[in-house]
């Protein structure tokens, strides 16, 4: 019975939010607010569960040092007070510091060295003209796109630099087009899931 009720609620909310395609109405807003309310409630429960298991239970079992992150967490709420705003900066500084420190450990390897390594392509792949051509396009695109951002070279007004820079701009536009197409694909796929749900699970057609 609960499954059937859930199915109907889900179907009705899907239809309600779909009315947004026509225009923003109280019907679509109601569905939107229900979703936000449910997610907020769930987030609060999850957050409390996380604090409970990673701090409260440990403090209660005698691991008193876990009170420090709890105090730091409470300090973060000082941002809502104009007089005590400065207190909020300490936990944030700590969180940012830990985050940056952790990320730095793999940053150079993952985001710099490995990416530079992966940009070295062989221009002659034996027996595979397609791969060779593909790698050549990658190299020209990489160099020209980088050229677009080197303003000192462009300032020399060298015709080669300007042409490469222009090609780099078109290459980036092609990349942005690819990103845009992927964004559309994501949205379509998200809605395809809802259509499939309405047609196959709710109406049981097909």
């Amino acid at each position: 019975m609960a499954d059937v009720i859930g199915l109907w609620i889900s179907a009705i909310l899907t239809i309600m939010i779909t009315t947004l395609a026509w225009k923003d109405t109280p019907v679509s807003k109601t569905a939107e607010h229900i979703y936000l309310g449910v997610i907020t409630a769930n987030s609060i429960v999850m957050a409390w569960g996380s604090i409970d298991s990673s701090a409260i239970q440990k403090i209660m079992s005698g691991q008193i040092l876990y009170i420090i992150p709890v105090i730091l967490g409470i300090m973060a709420y000082a941002r809502y007070s104009k007089e005590n705003f400065w207190i909020y900066r300490y936990p944030i500084a700590l969180v940012v510091g830990i985050g940056v420190g952790t990320a730095m450990s793999g940053l150079v390897g993952g985001s710099v060295i490995d990416q530079i390594k992966s940009s070295f392509w062989s221009l002659n792949v034996p027996g595979d003209i397609g791969a060779s051509l593909n790698n050549l396009i990658m190299v020209v695109t990489l160099v020209s796109a980088m050229m677009y951002f080197i303003f000192t070279i462009k300032a020399t007004r060298s015709p080669i630099a300007i042409k490469l820079s222009t090609f780099g701009r078109y290459a980036m536009m092609a990349a942005f087009g690819y990103s845009f197409a992927n964004t559309i694909a994501t949205r379509i796929n998200q809605y395809a899931g809802r259509i499939a749900f309405l047609m196959l699970e709710w109406l049981q057609l097909g």
Partner: peptide, 29 residues
């Protein structure tokens, strides 16, 4: 950073389509 670079663990992912272009620089290394 924490699994592939630090410990050389193999990493696979599924993301929504619009995230793929931002991840391609990391693939396949």
């Amino acid at each position: 950073r924490q699994a592939a670079v630090q410990y050389d663990l193999p990493l696979i992912t599924e993301v929504n389509e619009m995230m793929v272009p931002t991840l391609l620089p990391y693939y396949p290394i």
